[in-house]
Nucleic acid binder design. Structure first.
Lengths: 170, 170
DNA sequence: CGCAATTCAATTGCGCACAACCCAATTGCC
DNA sequence: GGCAATTGGGTTGTGCGCAATTGAATTGCG
């Protein structure tokens, strides 16, 4: 086919890219983000292998180390994850002996998630993960902070946009 | 710069963050990235629903729209994806009638991926996706460009770090 | 009190990401 | 020519991420 309809770059003056160019630019915005996210995943995979954790499991452990026992709902709010993701993940952590799950006696709908001895102890071995990650980024703390702020603003804007287009909210 | 890049045990002196604090900071670096990536995913999911594409499928189409026919290997290089991800994805695109796959006669190991009529035609309907995404971010093009540059640097550093820790390369 | 609406967790189904493997075709070297 | 090493796709298995559904428990309202 040799379709390659990529329009010649000659048409637009500086500052007025053609619509076709946006199909490239577009790739770069979100694709860079996606690529960075997966690149982080690769480094975490290496560092967390010793601890027997995946990255999302590590995030759950971070939340529990920081806040102690929590209902599944709260864990999900901290991580922006729903029960469809958390339920099997928490079961795996339970099977690994790092986490306890028990129904709340007051409200039988709710499940409290807490750390086992072993889960609490694992924190010690995780302490140097952040430093090793920071080293891998090759960026200083200030740059990271600025980047984080930018990303959080972006996330907020995107969530907002998704909501206004959500079913019944036009 | 309160960081001590020295590999020694973090001295929890007052003023400098304790090691435990890094377990929070750490969450924020990569977690923000992850969250932003998923937030993008949510917006793309909405916009691409009309086109019958998922976001990774959309990325493949972008590559094909830009470059025309390519071997699977090249598609994977553009997107940083391996055959384990691409094979089933391309099969779905083929089943949807957007893509052709055929063995290269010169090298029977290689599979060429090209667009069908329908796949080429779909480009027209995708033209305004980037603009709508840009609108959803609420950011101007300059900010996006700066962010992208930062993320690409980060990705490169992380890939580098992952490589130096790769098997047999300590 | 009784019934409807809400809330929370779990499950199911689909698709992506990646590691680990297999297989066929090709290339290099003798 | 013959054989090992490499290359390119594919498959399998595990684990996330999300939508949609289910089901039980709780709450609210008349």
């Amino acid at each position: 086919m040799t379709a390659t309809p990529a329009p010649g770059p000659g048409a637009p003056a500086a500052g007025a890219p053609a619509a076709g160019d946006f199909l490239r630019l577009d790739e770069q915005i979100c694709f860079s983000l996606n690529a960075a996210s997966r690149a982080f995943g690769g480094v975490y995979r290496i560092l967390l292998k010793d601890l027997g954790l995946t990255y999302p499991q590590y995030l759950v452990m971070l939340v529990l180390w920081e806040h102690g026992e929590l209902p599944v709902k709260k864990v999900g709010e901290h991580l922006r994850l729903d029960s469809g993701t958390l339920s099997p993940l928490l079961k795996r952590l339970e099977a690994a002996g790092l986490v306890r799950r028990e129904r709340n006696a007051r409200d039988e709908r709710s499940v409290q998630v807490g750390l086992t001895e072993e889960g609490s102890a694992l924190r010690e071995r995780a302490l140097d993960v952040p430093r090793r990650i920071a080293a891998a980024t090759g960026a200083d703390l200030e740059e990271i902070r600025a980047l984080r702020a930018r990303l959080d603003r972006l996330t907020a804007a995107l969530d907002e946009a998704a909501l206004t287009r959500a079913p019944g909210c036009t």
